[in-house]
Design a protein around this nucleic acid. Structure first.
Lengths: 144, 144
DNA sequence: CCTTGTTGGTTACAAAGGTAACTAACATCA
DNA sequence: TGATGTTAGTTACCTTTGTAACCAACAAGG
């Protein structure tokens, strides 16, 4: 007789979160990885520039909560792809104003639309109610 | 006038999944990382040996769906910590039977209990109903 | 001015993980 | 028993990421 159930890793929430996150990331990453050779951090930086316009690396780092070294490397990669331009700030020569160039803007448009499509497909798959519940719970967990 | 809402990364499910997974993994990893200097793969390998008994590296690899190179490195690390013993198989000299030694068994007991406690705390925090819904949805997404 | 401390951004180094190539042992079949 | 192919496990190499050190520019106070 056993008073306590054996612990099952297969039902452990942090484990399931990791599996689900990897699975869904793998699916969506095909968009930015295969189409543009981008890494996830690059996509996130591109997104912030596309959505909010000209920003400095520090501003991206704060808004996106990405460490400044990762931003630095992503910016360099995006620059090499001719996706963004850097202009030294007038008021602070340490800082650079970053903005998307036409190809970067085009990639942003394509990827944003892909993301909307992806989200819509997920919502159809899970049902509107469950998809909303999922997002709500994930936000609570992410905030921990 | 705008016919389509701007896409918001902050509400994108794959993004929220990644944040939530990182957040919860960070919290739980303190148990195996700080207490035993283990990485996540080591904890997963230890778990399988503790839960299912003597296994070969290949069997762990299949059951846990961890690539054999990751298993190989985790096994070496656990061996260096004196957490497991390897004995060449009688029937196949390429293969080794792996089993936990006393300190490994002790670590397994502590970590399994920590995981049960963690899950219970999460369930209190989210409520039983939402916690169950979350696990159900994550399993669906992980299966993709 | 001129120190002292802070900030924006990059680089160096080490840790981890993925992929491919490899070694030794096994299995099969002629 | 010997050639051929497969399998268990390890190693080598490369990419990505985190941490710390670093450089140049700024800011504040004397």
């Amino acid at each position: 007789m056993q008073t306590e159930d054996d612990f099952e890793l297969a039902g452990f929430t942090p484990y399931l979160l990791t599996l689900a996150a990897e699975s869904q990331s793998d699916v969506f990453s095909r968009n930015y990885r295969d189409l543009y050779g981008m890494l996830r951090t690059e996509w996130r930086v591109l997104y912030h520039l596309g959505r909010y316009g000209e920003l400095s690396a520090r501003e991206i780092s704060e808004r996106a909560r990405i460490h400044k070294t990762k931003v630095s490397r992503a910016v360099r990669a995006l620059e090499e792809k001719r996706f963004l331009a850097r202009v030294t700030s007038d008021t602070d020569r340490r800082s650079e104003r970053l903005s998307l160039r036409a190809p970067g803007r085009a990639a942003f448009d394509v990827l944003s639309q892909a993301a909307r499509d992806y989200e819509a497909a997920l919502e159809r798959r899970l049902g509107k109610r469950d998809a909303r519940t999922l997002r709500r719970l994930l936000k609570r967990l992410a905030a921990t």
